[in-house]
Every structure is written in C-alpha cells, then in structure tokens.
C-alpha cells in the first residue's frame, strides 16, 4: 500500500464523484475520503490526513481558503491543490497565501489532473504570470523580501514577464524540474510570511 492518498472537498456531487472516479481508476492513487463542505472536511482532514487534498474554493459554509488556513495553523502535513476555474483570480492568490501548494484548473482533462497530482507529490508547483506578479508584490510589501533567495526572485521575475517554465530552465541552465521545485519553495515561504503577518495582525486582538 504505497499509493498516494488523496481527499476531495467539493460541494457539487457530480463533480466530486467525477474526480473520485478519475483518481480511483489511476494506479498508484487512492481516494481515501470525500467531503461536501469545509466544516466536515476540517474534522475529517485533521483526524485522518491524506497526502494531497483537492479543495474547491466556493463552499456553502466556510470557504476552502478558510479551511486551508485553519488546517495549516494546526500544522497539518497535507499538500493542498486548489480547484479553480480561473487561475489568475485573487481567490487563488489568497488560497496560495493561506497555505495551498498549487492549483488545478476545473477544465483540466483527466490526464492533466493526474499530472498535476504527480507533480505536486514530487515537490513541484504551477504558477501563472499574474500570480507571480502578486507574489513579488507581496514579498516587497512585507519587508521580508530578504527571506526569498536571489535565484527565487529571478525565477519569479521571469515568470511575471511571461516566460514559460521551459524557457526559464534554458535561460538559467537548470532543468524544468528544478524550476518547479524553486516555485514550490516560494510557496512555502509565502505561507510562512503570511502566517507571521497574520500573527502580527491578530496578536492580542483576536477573541
């Protein structure tokens, strides 16, 4: 039993089942649980954490973003993949800041869905041009810009300028896999930065 454990949080039953079907059919993956809202997911995911959770953003009660934030505050080891229609939205950026490690487009073909899961599991991450720009701004703003390495900033800037992963790899004489790993690290730093910011903000003020 060395298969990758996946959980799904999605409120529309047909989509939830469709995803479950795709994952169950693929060798090396197991869909261990599905949840229809954030409240149930919060309980279930913290009790029995999978390797990867696919998280829809618009859920009936708490949003997927809030759910990710709460679980990350509890130091959950889960890698989150946000399930979204539009990759450049503010919501995707918020989710990434809250602790997600990547996003999955809702119109991705079954093949691409499985690719994305594999990629995340092996330490990679996707990042669009606009998201890269927002990440750069966020690091500039937080005065913790030095927490990010020069190489990482270089990659962010190339991404923001519209370069493809392949082109960045060629330009920097590294492999595409390395580019993806850098981006994965950038996301991790974004979470840390975001958490300290949140702590500063709520210190002594939260009920």
């Amino acid at each position: 039993m060395n298969s990758i454990q996946v959980a799904i949080v999605e409120d529309i039953a047909e989509i939830r089942e469709g995803l479950r079907f795709i994952i169950q059919q693929t060798a090396g993956f197991n869909c261990q649980a599905v949840y229809a809202n954030a409240e149930e997911a919060l309980v279930g995911l913290s009790a029995d954490p999978p390797d990867i959770a696919i998280m829809d953003i618009a859920l009936p009660g708490d949003s997927g973003i809030a759910c990710i934030r709460k679980l990350k505050q509890l130091n959950s080891p889960i890698q989150f993949l946000v399930f979204t229609i539009y990759e450049d939205s503010d919501q995707v950026f918020d989710a990434l800041s809250a602790g997600a490690n990547g996003y999955l487009l809702k119109n991705a073909t079954p093949g691409k869905i499985i690719d994305a899961l594999h990629e995340l599991y092996s330490g990679g991450a996707p990042m669009s041009t606009l998201i890269a720009r927002k990440v750069i701004n966020s690091f500039h703003r937080s005065r913790e810009g030095d927490s990010i390495s020069a190489r990482e900033m270089e990659i962010l800037q190339l991404l923001a300028g519209g370069f493809l992963y392949k082109e960045i790899a060629d330009k920097l004489y590294i492999s595409t896999g390395t580019v993806k790993q850098h981006i994965h690290h950038i996301y991790e730093k974004l979470h840390v930065q975001n958490r300290t910011e949140a702590i500063n903000k709520f210190f002594g003020k939260h009920r």
């Binding site: 989509i15 089942e17 469709g18 618009a58 229609i85 809702k106 079954p110």
Partner: peptide, 18 residues
C-alpha cells in the same frame, strides 16, 4: 460569470465525461 456560469460549465464537463 466566474461563480455561476463557471461552476455550471464545470458540472456539464464532468457530467458528459461520466
């Protein structure tokens, strides 16, 4: 568009796939 049409179209995509 994103919220309503988007989720509807996604549903359609998954339904036809299934």
């Amino acid at each position: 568009m994103h919220d309503d049409m988007g989720s509807g179209l996604t549903l359609l995509l998954f339904l036809s796939r299934s």
